[in-house]
Design a protein around this nucleic acid. Structure first.
Length: 267
DNA sequence: AGGGTAACCCGGACGC
DNA sequence: TGCGTCCGGGTTACCC
């Protein structure tokens, strides 16, 4: 399941491979993948567009084209695959962009949660997002004040993309454990020292993810040994790697939430 | 206003 | 085998 580090890695790879290529044709194989515009308009507008830049904003992959922005959100099960144009479409391919130079970019998405936007106004999609957790503007001071401007449980607040953009369920649990903060702790009860710890933990787990996936992205979506790196996520009943206490799993805002009741005491 | 939860979209995994 | 339930990213609708 692609979270921010995986999306970052995909965007970097695509940037290295696809800048300068022209989109010859779009093969839309599952029309609901398209958030906007209509399939007809999409095919018409994307034809002949040149890819000038590829980047990431939150968990969106942003393709800057000659006169539009193509935004792709992979959600749960989406993946972007570079293929030769002669390769047959694979099961669960939702959109295939045929490019100049004999390559194709395939958006493959088993669960059909992922969405694609083609728009001249990307801010309509990206405008409400909070700051990037790895950008210079995300500082311990900003986090402290932002936390105190709300009175919300830390876990749902950190998952709120308008508060901070790009944290998903796994990295939120990991960051809270590293910062020794209970997921239900109220945001305005966090001390300046705790905000500093949380800030460091968020950047640390994301950077760790990026570093890891840069080396071996292929198993990220296939299970493999990904879970061996988790401190708390998906480790219910297993010993905390810090203190040995059994990791607990609770539901917070309908999300599975994992924490160490000893390291992350509420009081 | 600002907090919370439920439904929604999906298919795979898993339990019975 | 087969049916029901859970899971999850993020938005929207709705209630407190």
């Amino acid at each position: 399941m692609p979270e921010l580090p995986e999306v970052e890695t995909i965007a970097r790879r695509l940037e290295a491979e696809l800048v300068g290529k022209t989109i010859r044709e779009a093969d839309l194989r599952w029309s609901r993948t398209l958030a906007t515009p209509s399939p007809r308009k999409f095919k018409e507008q994307i034809r002949g567009q040149k890819i000038t830049n590829i980047s990431r904003r939150a968990k969106y992959i942003v393709f800057r084209l000659s006169s539009f922005h193509l935004l792709i959100h992979l959600r749960m099960s989406g993946d972007l695959l570079l293929r030769n144009s002669t390769t047959e479409p694979a099961p669960h391919d939702r959109l295939i962009l045929k490019l100049s130079g004999g390559k194709s970019l395939a958006f493959n998405d088993t669960r059909k949660f992922g969405r694609v936007w083609l728009t001249a106004q990307p801010e309509e999609v990206l405008g409400k997002l909070g700051p990037e957790p790895l950008d210079a503007g995300f500082t311990p001071e900003w986090l402290y004040h932002a936390l105190h401007a709300k009175r919300r449980q830390l876990k749902p607040l950190l998952l709120d993309q308008t508060f901070l953009a790009g944290l998903g369920n796994i990295y939120t649990d990991e960051a809270l454990h590293l910062a020794r903060l209970h997921p239900l702790k109220l945001s305005d009860s966090v001390s300046i020292q705790q905000a500093q710890a949380l800030h460091g933990a968020i950047q640390s787990v994301l950077r760790e993810g990026i570093r890891r996936n840069g080396a071996s992205i292929d198993w990220v979506y296939r299970g493999g040994e990904f879970q061996n790196y988790f401190r708390v996520y998906d480790r219910e009943g297993k010993p905390c790697k810090t203190c040995g206490t059994k990791i607990e799993r609770i539901t917070v805002g309908q999300r599975g939430t994992h924490f160490c009741p000893n390291c992350q005491a509420l009081k």
